[in-house]
Nucleic acid binder design. Structure first.
Lengths: 198, 198
DNA sequence: TGGCTTTGTCAACGAGTGTTGGCCTACAGT
DNA sequence: ACTGTAGGCCAACACTCGTTGACAAAGCCA
């Protein structure tokens, strides 16, 4: 367990990053303090500044490289795309805490919201576009999928809404699958005329 | 415009509450400072404490009495319940900022999350139960509806996800309606056996 | 007019924050 | 053995926060 003192920096950097991710995920950006993160990592707060420069940059490092690892949906049988997507997200979240980080922080921190925009544009939209009937509709369909997926994550991992946390991952997947399928491939619904909009 | 000095307290109290709601909605709980709220209301920070006791109590007052005013779904033709529900939520949010307050604050503040649990249990679950095939399923179905509805609000009003904000309220309603309908009345989906869960 | 309550301001406290610079220590290379 | 350097800690700064108590002004009531 006892290591030589030099060439230890990589280990410490990683420890800080892990502690930061946990704190950001558990408390959001503002309540996650440098001091608490440093305490979790077992080092002095000054080290955090030395290695990451500022809290903002530490957050950027903690929330960087969020890779959803979305599968190639074009290779999936068309009628299974929805359930496959739902299962993928659930799987991801039950084992990775990168997404709660962005969810909690994105609600109040502008930089986090911008990062979610980027993830949406570079990962979700292309994946959806691969199986979309009309590629021009991909952004809108991807946004709808994102809304359902983030909403479920919000209820389950952030708000801890009782009926949602007591469901198994399989149940959630079974419910979300058809909905994602609908957003992916259903015909664009006609908006009623303003006459009966009220 | 100039009023007598006494009997002014009700006006000031209301001004504080309005400013508080705006700040909590725009910045979340932690970034909304008493000083900023007081400045918006045009008075001294000490007045906020005098009238509301503490920041926590001010937040409670600002987030209190969130009445979704859900319609009696039993009186709606069964096949229109989904679209009716979607339209109601959209209508509510485009004109009221009480919900963004809870969304932003609920992500990081425990008291806000608890308040959302209460709103869910006392308003959404009963409304859903009125049209649910099996009342025992009402909490789960209500949770799914809530997840989609909160997810849409998150993308549209908090994260400002571009494709979502550029949709009209009518388009969002048309997309969400069938999904809410599905959560309300579709048969409980069978969860596949563990054999093909991977 | 004189006192009492209400409405409000001002200055300050104590705690907690991100951040900085100086100092100590122990290893690596010579 | 000596020295340079990198890893790490400590103390402190400057600032903001929620919160408090003392004090001033203005109305109401007698």
């Amino acid at each position: 367990m006892i290591r030589s003192k030099s060439r230890q920096s990589a280990t410490t950097r990683a420890a800080i990053l892990n502690a930061a991710r946990e704190r950001f995920a558990a408390s959001g950006y503002e309540r996650a303090t440098i001091r608490a993160i440093a305490a979790d990592a077992g080092i002095d707060p000054a080290m955090v500044m030395r290695y990451y420069g500022s809290k903002e940059q530490l957050f950027a490092a903690a929330a960087a490289q969020v890779d959803l690892r979305l599968p190639d949906l074009a290779a999936v049988p068309p009628e299974e795309v929805g359930i496959r997507l739902a299962r993928h997200f659930l799987d991801r979240w039950e084992h990775d805490e990168a997404m709660p980080v962005l969810l909690r922080a994105g609600a109040t921190h502008e930089a986090a919201a911008q990062r979610m925009h980027k993830i949406f544009a570079t990962q979700i939209v292309p994946a959806v576009g691969a199986v979309c009937p009309d590629p021009a509709e991909a952004p809108a369909r991807a946004a709808l999928i994102t809304s359902q997926v983030l909403g479920a994550a919000l209820c389950r991992y952030v708000l801890h809404l009782p009926p949602f946390v007591s469901m198994t991952a399989g149940e959630v997947t079974a419910w979300l699958g058809p909905v994602l399928q609908h957003y992916l491939s259903a015909a664009d619904p006609q908006v009623r005329l303003p006459a009966d909009a009220r």
